[in-house]
Design a protein around this nucleic acid. Structure first.
Length: 448
RNA sequence: GCCCCCAUCGUCUAACGGUUAGGACACCACUCUUUCAAGGUGGUAACGGGAGUUCGAUUCUCCCUGGGGGUACCA
């Protein structure tokens, strides 16, 4: 598995700015939405200013790390459309370097040995920085105890490795979660002891679940991959994540193009308050993105879903699939829903009625039977070359008129017979999408 | 306990001393319609509390309250 391949940036805007940011996840097996948003902010800012966006995998915890886990993270970022510059850095491969620097600090008297471990001397005065998100933040050195940078087994600790790596990677802006604010004074002390200038620090707020608590497994889907599985489009996920904790100002809400988002992005627009992850809004936003995509663009996304649902898209005329996607897309919130509805329109299997449909039939079985039977008879007389929405609607309206009943009394039973549900696009469009043969067969089955 | 961060509708947010406190999701009506999770129109709904500063505070300062994070030889 080639973990160290470098990504070719799609939108490198010149290397001139000298600004370098990084995203440093630990390979836990999934990309948490909070991490994903942090990555997105880093990426957006790097691209905005023409800087570099780097990736460092913090795999020092060997017990929990694996190549597969790392791959999940990389896949998640790629799915979101976030590309990175230069080779991925693996922290685990750098322990020698960390040891060297720790020894260097020891020799210089900035750290001292204690029971085999190496402990950093914390300065007494004020440790402050101008946070790019929060503004001035300050701690007192005395409040932060001397801490271990190298364990007695000579492995480096997190807060120490991070600094050594950031220095070596020439990171100029550190943007990470709020939970690292209290780590920052420790890290600043390392920079000072090493005589290295500080990068800019910025701490973005956390993401919470609907109950206001830290987002966790308890809240259901928390990984980017979960949302991919649920039928969320990467562009929508990106859009939603970006607006969770960042605002372009004004009423701007939808970003269909990642370039527009990049151009609008500013550090000033980042929120200081934790945000709650609202799935409902994500779904709404996904629906917006869905209707924005042409059926042809949706096709490659829908195809694998259809396949995984035991449906063979290859067996169908591409035009028919596109036609189905087109009529279904506007009412769907997820690609999963699109696929399900497409399958209903193209498939030839038995139709199962949902509760609402069953209820509607039960209300007046005789009327349902009459409507579907007469519709089948009428539609059977429509030649294939006249099988198009306008003609079909005219036929059905004429049918209703001949019975002296409202058109709806004819349309709704047909809808139920064809979809097993009470909701769909206009019935004539539905019939058009399902096709003559299958339409007649379903009407017959419903009557039967 | 100690340290740090945060605080506008239920939720995401706009506002950067003077607004009927705006938009979006959700919700509720109404409307369109053959149905609807679609479209259209409208509505309910917020500045946590108390002191200041100021002619004037949602906005600036302090206190309180509430929420969050950190206090490891975890990351």
């Amino acid at each position: 598995m080639p973990m160290s391949e470098s990504n070719v940036p799609l939108s490198r805007q010149g290397e001139g700015s000298g600004v370098r940011l990084r995203f440093a996840p630990s390979p836990t097996g999934y990309l948490h939405v909070g991490g994903a948003r942090t990555a997105l902010f880093n990426w957006l800012y790097a691209r905005r200013v023409g800087g570099a966006f780097l990736l460092r995998i913090e795999d020092t915890d060997k017990a929990r790390s694996s190549d597969e886990h790392t791959q999940v993270i990389l896949d998640g970022l790629t799915w979101l459309g976030l590309d990175w510059d230069e080779d991925v850095v693996f922290q685990g491969a750098r322990v020698e370097r960390h040891r060297d620097v720790a020894d260097q600090l020891l020799a210089a008297g900035h750290a001292y040995a204690e029971e085999g471990a190496v402990r950093l001397r914390m300065p007494q005065g004020e440790i402050a920085w101008d946070d790019t998100v929060h503004g001035p933040i300050s701690f007192q050195g005395v409040d932060v105890k001397d801490w271990i940078i190298l364990r007695s087994d000579r492995t480096p600790t997190y807060n120490f490795s991070v600094v050594v790596d950031d220095i070596d990677m020439k990171v100029t802006q550190v943007m990470r979660g709020d939970d690292h604010i209290s780590n920052t004074p420790k890290q600043i002390a390392v920079y000072r002891a090493l005589g290295v200038p500080l990068p800019a620090f910025g701490h973005v707020p956390m993401i919470h679940g609907m109950d206001g608590k830290k987002l966790s497994k308890r809240h259901g889907a928390t990984a980017v991959g979960d949302y991919q599985q649920l039928g969320i489009l990467p562009a929508a996920m990106r859009n939603f994540l970006a607006l969770l904790g960042w605002s372009p100002g004004g009423d701007r809400e939808l970003f269909y193009d990642i370039k527009e988002m990049t151009e609008a992005f500013t550090l000033e627009g980042i929120q200081r308050k934790a945000a709650i992850f609202d799935t409902k809004k994500l779904e709404w936003m996904n629906g917006q993105h869905l209707t924005q995509l042409a059926p042809a663009e949706l096709l490659p996304i829908i195809t694998p879903i259809l396949t995984s649902q035991g449906f063979d898209p290859a067996a169908y005329d591409g035009e028919r699939i596109l036609r189905a996607i087109q009529v279904v897309r506007e009412r769907s919130r997820t690609t999963l829903e699109v696929a399900r509805q497409v399958a209903v329109r193209l498939g030839s299997g038995a139709i199962e009625n949902d509760p609402k449909a069953a209820e509607a039939i039960a209300k007046d079985p005789a009327a349902f039977k009459t409507a579907t039977e007469s519709a089948a008879r009428r539609l059977a007389g429509v030649p294939e070359d006249k099988w198009e929405p306008t003609q079909l609607e005219a036929e059905l309206r004429a049918l209703a008129e001949s019975f002296g009943i409202p058109a709806g009394k004819v349309f709704q039973p047909i809808r139920i017979a064809l979809t097993g549900g009470t909701v769909s696009e206009p019935v004539h469009d539905l019939i058009w999408a399902v096709g003559k043969t299958e339409t007649l067969s379903r009407l017959k089955a419903a009557t039967g």
